[in-house]
Design a protein around this nucleic acid. Sequence first.
RNA 1: GCCGGCGUAGCUCAAUGGUAGAGCGGCGCACUCGUAAUGCGCAGGUUGUGGGUUCGAUUCCCACCGCCGGCUCCA
Length: 581
Amino acid sequence: MSISEKDMEILRHSTSHVMAQAVRRLFPEVKVAIGPAIENGFYYDFDKPEPFTQQDLGLIEEEMRKIVKEDLPIVGREVPREEALGLFNEAGETYKVELIRDMPDAEVVILYRQGEFVDLCRGPHVESTGKIKEFKLLNVAGAYWRGDEKNKMLQRIYGTAFPTKVELDHYLEMLAEAEKRDHRRLGKELDIFSLHEEGGAGLVYWHPKGGIIRKVIEDFWRDEHLKRGYDLVFSPHIAKRDLWEISGHWGWYRENMYSPIDIDGVEYLLKPMNCPFHIMMYKTKTRSYRDLPLRWAELGTVYRYERSGVLHGMLRVRGFTQDDAHLFMRPDQLEDELVGVIDLVKFMMESFSYKEYDFELSVRDPLNKEQYVGSDDVWELAETALVSAMNRAGIKFRRMEGEAKFYGPAIDVHIKDALGRGWQGPTIQVDFNLPERFDINYIGEDNAPHRPVMIHRTVLGSMERFVAGLIEHYNGAFPVWLAPVQARIIPIADRHFDYAKDVEKAFRDVDLRVETDARPEKVGYKIREAQVEKIPYMIIVGDKEIDEEKIAVRSRTEGDLGVMALPEFVARIVREIREKI
RNA sequence: GCCGGCGUAGCUCAAUGGUAGAGCGGCGCACUCGUAAUGCGCAGGUUGUGGGUUCGAUUCCCACCGCCGGCUCCA
C-alpha cells in the first residue's frame, strides 16, 4: 500500500526529528539546526565539534529505534515568542534562537515536544514516535548554515524513511542499481571515456567507443538541424579580452573564466560561451528583415572554471562541448521560433527515449526588477511569447519566479531517466542583453535599423553531460543505432574464420559497425564477453551456418534467435537502427 | 572553494612500523570447442606526489594532487 505524498513528507519530517532527538541523547554537546523532509528522505543539520563517523550513524539508528519503541507522543503547542526564545537560549540552541528572531512578527511560534526533546517546528508530525516504521541513515556531509558559504559549516546527516519495509528495501535497491549504472563505472568498464590526474581534473578523454557514440549523436544532431533550417558554424576557442569586455562576460562571468593567455602582448581568453562569436558573424554585414530568422548552430567546445569540489565524472567538467545555437530574429518572429525550438527539443528527447520531461518557465523576480537588463515591455513580450509557444505546443509548465538569468526569461527542461531520476535537460533562453551590448540590428521594412531578438538554446546540453546521462539511462546497453559495436561475429573454430570475415564484410558493406572475435576461445567465453560489453547482437558461425550460407543470431536481450539468412538479419537490424530502438 | 572520507598491480580488493598478496585482466603454451568464464605457466607495484618523525615508513604527521559523499554553483 502506498500513502499520499503529504503523508510521506510528514513521516520523513518526523523521522528527522527522531534522529535529532537520538543525536541529542548520544551527543549532548550538539546543537541542532534544521531538519526537513526532502525528496526520497530527510536530513538534519547539526553543529558538533567532532565529525560524525560511520559508527556514529549505527549508534544513532539504534537510539532512534529505542525512541520509536518508547512511542512518545509528539505534541505541538503554540507559545509566546519570548517563552520559546528563553527556552532555546537556556538550552544553548543558538540556531533555533536565530530562526525565531528572524521569523516575521505575525508568524506564530510552534514548539513540538516528544519526550525530553523540544524542537521549533511548523509541523505537522505523526502523532507519536511509534508511528515511524522503516528508516535508514545514509550518509554524513557538510552543509553551510542556511546554505550560505559565508556561514559556519554544519554536519548534515541524510536518511530515508518509508511506511513499510518493502518500500524501504525497494528504494535501497534503486540506490544500488543507480550505483551500478553510474556512468563513471560503466564509462570505464565499457571503455567509453577516462579522466586523468596527470592531465588535470574535469577534462574528459573520449576513447574510441565513446568517440563512435559521440559521432553518431553529432551526425544525427547536425542532420536534424540542417533539416530544420539551421546553418552550421564554427568559431575559435579563444578571443581577445576586448570581445569579452563588450559581451560583458569579463565583468559578470570572470570567476568562471581562465586566466588570459598572452599572445604578442595581447590578452586572449579561452571561451566559456559561444555567443559572442556568433554575434561577430552576424555583424559582418547589414542584415535585412528578410534575412531573419538566422539559426546558427555549433557544437562549440567551451572551458569554464568549476570549483574543484563540484567536478563529477563527465557530468560536471571544466571543458565541454555544448550543442549550442543562436537564433536571431525580428520580435514578431519570436513565438514561431520558440515553437520550432520546443518541437526540436521534444523530437530530440524522444529520439533518445526520454519519455518524461517537465518544462519550467524561468521569469523575473517581480520584486527586484531592477536586477534585470531590458525594459518591462521586452520582458513582457518575451514572456508572452514563451507562454503562448508552450501553449501552442500543448506543454504544461511550472512558472519559476526569480529563476531567470538577468538577461532574459527562459525555458528549462528537466528530463527523467529510466530510473525516474531527474536530469538537467534542454534550455531555451531569450537574450535582451547581447544584441544591445554588441549593437546588432537589421534594416526593417521602414528602412530603419531595428534591434533583433536573440534566442540562445541547447538541446542536449553538452556532449559530456548528455552522454553521461545516456550511459545511465540505458545502463550502458545502448540501442543499436548508438552502440559502438552493433554486432560481433563469433566463429566457433579457426576453420570458420574465413566465413566470419565474409559475413563481416557483408555487414560493413551496409554500414554496420561489426567486428570478428577470432581468438581461439570457446564460444561460451566469447559470448559471455560480448554480453558483458553489452553488444546488441552476436553472430555465431560454424559448420552448420557455412553449409547453409546462413548465420546464427543471438540478441543481447532475447538470447538465441536461431539461424537465419543474412538479408533477414540485415533487414531486422537496419529497421532497428532506423527506428532508434 | 568548504566539511568529512579515501588513494596498494590495468580493474576489484587484502596485508603490515621491518621495503607487499589474491581474483579478474594481460602475455605464453596446450585445447579447435555450438550460445554467459578450458587448463597450465609467466610477467606486472619506488603502495598518488613532495617533505617530516623514526635505526627503519607503504603504515605515523604535514603539504600538495586526485577521487568519493554533500554544501554552494552549474551545460
